[in-house]
Simulated assay, not measured.
Amino acid sequence: SAATPVEDLRYKISEKSDSTIRVTERNSDVVVTEKADAADAVPFIRTETAPNFPGGKDKLRAFINKNISFPATAYKDGVLNMDAVVQLTIAKDGVVKDAHIVKSSGKTLDAEALRMARMLPKFHPGLNGGVPAESSYTLAFQYYVNQQQ
């Protein structure tokens, strides 16, 4: 499967949700970012117009799929299961900075998700009132690879 920006995913908040979960509304979807009281909470910076990858989401997926690499140590019994989420800050000039893991898939796969996030080329920045502004972008890495098939 391909890496999918979180904007494409729908998250549901169940009745069992903890009242300390910080929720950010984005493009009419609800994205659960993390526990608001967590010591390492990463703020989510919203803009009127979201940042976007040059060429769109399909080009972003293609870039990631072309460049992602899984070390042999990432496989357990011939299976790799990656479900990591990285939050990025997109600067006013479109440069990707401040990549943080907000959902972990373990040390090895998190390192690969961060490596990929840090090698992304410039985005079209988010806009506030038509002016480029620093903003957040959340990227989900969801891969399942079974070498035994």
Rank of each mutant, 00 (worst) to 15 (best):
A3P: 00
A3C: 08
A3H: 01
T4Q: 09
V6L: 12
E7S: 13
E7Y: 10
D8K: 13
D8T: 14
L9D: 07
R10I: 15
R10F: 09
Y11R: 13
I13K: 15
I13R: 15
S14T: 14
K16H: 09
K16E: 11
K16C: 10
S17H: 06
I21D: 01
R22T: 05
V23F: 05
V23I: 15
V23M: 09
E25K: 10
S28R: 12
S28G: 10
D29I: 07
D29Q: 12
V31A: 04
V32R: 02
V32N: 03
V32S: 05
A36P: 08
A36R: 14
A36T: 15
D37R: 13
A38W: 11
A39V: 15
A39E: 15
D40C: 11
V42T: 08
I45N: 04
T47S: 10
E48M: 15
T49P: 03
T49W: 05
A50M: 13
P51K: 04
P51M: 10
G56Q: 07
G56S: 09
G56N: 11
K57G: 04
K59H: 07
K59W: 06
L60Q: 02
L60I: 12
R61H: 13
A62D: 12
A62C: 14
A62V: 07
N67M: 07
S69M: 14
F70T: 02
P71V: 07
Y75V: 04
K76D: 08
G78K: 06
L80V: 04
N81L: 12
M82V: 10
V85P: 00
V85S: 01
L88D: 00
I90K: 00
I90C: 02
A91Q: 11
K92W: 09
K92M: 10
G94E: 06
D98Y: 03
K103F: 06
K103A: 07
G106Q: 08
K107T: 14
K107Y: 15
T108S: 15
T108A: 15
L109Q: 03
D110R: 07
A111K: 05
A111V: 09
E112N: 07
A113W: 00
L114Y: 04
L114R: 04
L114E: 03
M116T: 01
A117N: 01
M119V: 13
P121M: 09
P121N: 14
K122I: 09
H124L: 08
G126K: 00
G129M: 14
G129S: 13
G130T: 11
G130L: 13
G130H: 09
P132Y: 06
P132K: 05
A133K: 05
A133L: 12
E134S: 05
L139N: 00
A140I: 08
Q142S: 08
V145C: 05
V145D: 03
N146H: 12
N146M: 12
Q148K: 15
Q148S: 12
